[in-house]
Simulated scan of single mutants.
Amino acid sequence: MTMRVGVLLNPIAGFGGTLAMHGTDLLAADRFADAVAAGRSSRRLVRALETWQARGGAARLVSAPGLLGADALRSAGFDARVDVVEEATGPTTRRDTLAAARRLIADGIDALLFSGGDGTATDIAEAIGLAVPVIGVPSGVKMHSQVFSRSPEAAGRLLAELTAGRAWDETADVLDAAADGSPGVIAALRAARAGEPLQGAKGGSSAPSDAGERRAIAAELLRASGPATTWIIGPGTTAAALADALGVAGTLRGVDVRHPSGAVELDVDEERLLAVVSAAADPRLVLGVVGGQGFLLGRGNHELSPRVLSALGADRVSIVATSSKVATLVPPVLYIDADDGLGGEPAGSRHPLLGYRRVRTGARQTTVLNVVDAAA
């Protein structure tokens, strides 16, 4: 029998990542059309399905209606059957996502492919529980949950294995941000699995030595800097140790700038970062690693786009991670999940940080890790 795969997307997922917005849960109604037009979630869904199709994937696609899936599939040329679900008359909300997911289950799908972020995964878990295996196409801003593939292409390869009967599923945690911004387990879904692993759940550093290592890393960075250094401080606790050493009350989840004058800019967006990098005499970026996942870029730091990195130069980027965080990386590599076209760079461009890079892990301690494209 031909497998029936439900397709559902959050049409505004990922909007505002480069604008220093940390998700779309509280997106103003007058920005909805802009978010849909940006189309990040739909493009990444199509990339996953194109990979699946290129690998000979055979299944019946059963799509949620309109902006929730059918529009994207039709514009990409996929033969999708649209379920009869009441169309929203205005901007879609989580209620529409919940209703569409439940209707897809009632229609008898065998699996669900969805495109969005942690908020979308949370909604789907509420709607369907453990009814069918799911594959998450990473399209949001954070994506801390275990249900996401490492890239749209990885999701497409996993879907090909699933529809060919060569995959299994297991219960996986759905994480979303708590009030303080830290991820916590919200629910669970049945995540499809095959030979290619999914991303892990985001984890923090908890070894007793971590706090000391973070302070030592910050001290080493300051010793190697000068009075003209403009510090660009990425998200995360390891990079935040530098902010503490500089006397900056950073945002932790955002990208902050500390100028040579002592002036500070918090939660800076991509356009402003590009201007800062272009004008600074000695700009330096401190970039942490997402614990448990190994992501360097593409998870919660979209402001650090390829064009910002190209303007900065790879030699001005300090990658930092405690030794315990590095020890948990399986495999021991770092990932970049760049958006379509490498964020405005010419087609076929190589991301400036790909390849073997030195990672500072403590006082006079470094290791070398390979930074790879998550799509490969």
Rank of each mutant, 00 (worst) to 15 (best):
D34S: 01
V326T: 09
E170N: 04
A172F: 05
F295W: 09
L112W: 11
D373H: 13
P65A: 10
A376Q: 14
R357C: 02
V308F: 02
R193P: 01
A218Y: 03
G6F: 03
S139D: 03
A228G: 00
A172P: 05
L246D: 07
S349D: 09
G181H: 03
L19D: 08
A164E: 06
V36Q: 08
A207E: 09
S151V: 07
V372Q: 06
F148V: 06
S115A: 15
T92P: 08
F32T: 07
D71T: 09
Q365F: 05
D25L: 13
V46H: 11
A155V: 05
V371M: 14
R215Y: 09
R74Y: 10
V132D: 01
R316I: 13
N370W: 12
S149R: 11
S115E: 09
A167H: 04
P227F: 05
G116V: 12
S305P: 01
T230C: 12
L67S: 14
A275L: 01
A207D: 11
V248C: 01
S205I: 09
P133Y: 03
L334Q: 04
I217S: 01
P152T: 05
V134R: 05
D267W: 06
V85H: 14
G348M: 13
G129K: 07
G56F: 03
G254Q: 05
L9I: 10
V359C: 00
R258L: 00
A327R: 13
H259Y: 13
K325Y: 00
R193V: 04
L274R: 12
A363C: 10
A239I: 01
Q146R: 11
S115L: 08
I12A: 07
R81S: 00
A125V: 00
L304Q: 02
A347R: 14
S182P: 13
D169V: 00
Y356E: 15
A33N: 11
L297K: 02
E86T: 15
V286A: 02
E170D: 03
R190L: 12
V320Y: 08
Q146W: 02
R40I: 14
S278V: 06
T2F: 02
V330Y: 04
S324I: 10
L334T: 00
